[in-house]
Amino acid sequence: MSDSTTHPQMKVRPEARPAQPAAREEEHPRLDAARLVHVLLQAPLNIIVVAVSLLWLLPTAGLLVSSFRPAQAISQSGWWTALVPPYHFVLDNYIQVLTANGMGQGFINSLIITIPGTILPILIGSFAAYGFAWMNFPGRDWIFIVVVGLLVVPIQMTLIPILQLYNTLHLTGTFPGVWLAHTAYGLPLAVYLLRNFFQSLPKDLFESARLDGATERQIFFRIVIPLSVPALASLTIFQFLWVWNDLLVALIYLGGDPRVAPMTVTVSNLVNSYGSNYQVLTAAAFISMLLPLVVFFSLQQYFARGLLAGSIKG
């Protein structure tokens, strides 16, 4: 295998490239018949992508339909039976979740926990990733490999030692305590993914910037960060939804106190000790899913091809 194929970074061109295959076609106009053939050839591809997407959505669709069914019906018949008349959809589950005690406070607490819990690890992680990718210091590779290896530490094993530490530092039950915990748990992945991405940036960029007398800080903020937006965006999405959906860390470090507890804790209080009214979770799952999806869609634009090349230019 030649060097050129294993090194995508060498191939980054300083011109903006048209993004979609469809756009490429316009560069080489074809006859209508050829276009028709092309569309027909595309058809299986489209069908496959649609089919797989639907397959993946099917379980969630079941949840969505169930969330609008009366609790008694959920355990008596399959959710698909609700799709044929006579329809009997109710909002009971949603009303129960939305009017639950402390849901508003829980939502605000979730935001207070999640926003710094997302920004901090990505910020600190990208500093470290830059250091690991483009700086040289003794033991760098080994330290990095240990950082990545820390991914395997089960969170459960850290709870007791950290809780002991928090008690002496009076961090138990406070937001900064939870932010730091989420930062730590998110860091190994952030450092690993970002180092990989930074590493693949073209070496020439750094050399010329350094020749121009740019400091590391300038290189980082002006070159590395703008060029890594797709990686940063995907990491942001994941960190956001992990912290948003977290129950364990909040329960242990915050203690479930209603004044600081996030929405996940409030939601878990909706189910009785036998779990016999689990149906209410159908609605809760959709309500708590909304914000992560908004984040996902709003960050979608950063995944477009050509953005990388475009920002280098200029």
Binding site: P59, T60, N245, V267, L293
Partner: peptide, 28 residues
């Protein structure tokens, strides 16, 4: 495909569901 964003969202969606919700889904 032209609907890339929607297709990716479909596959991504389960990640956004809390595990408690996923447990209920697979019960069904």
């Amino acid at each position: 495909v032209r609907f890339e964003s929607a297709a990716k969202a479909a596959i991504f969606m389960p990640m956004a569901i809390s595990f408690v919700g996923a447990g209920v889904i697979w019960k069904f």
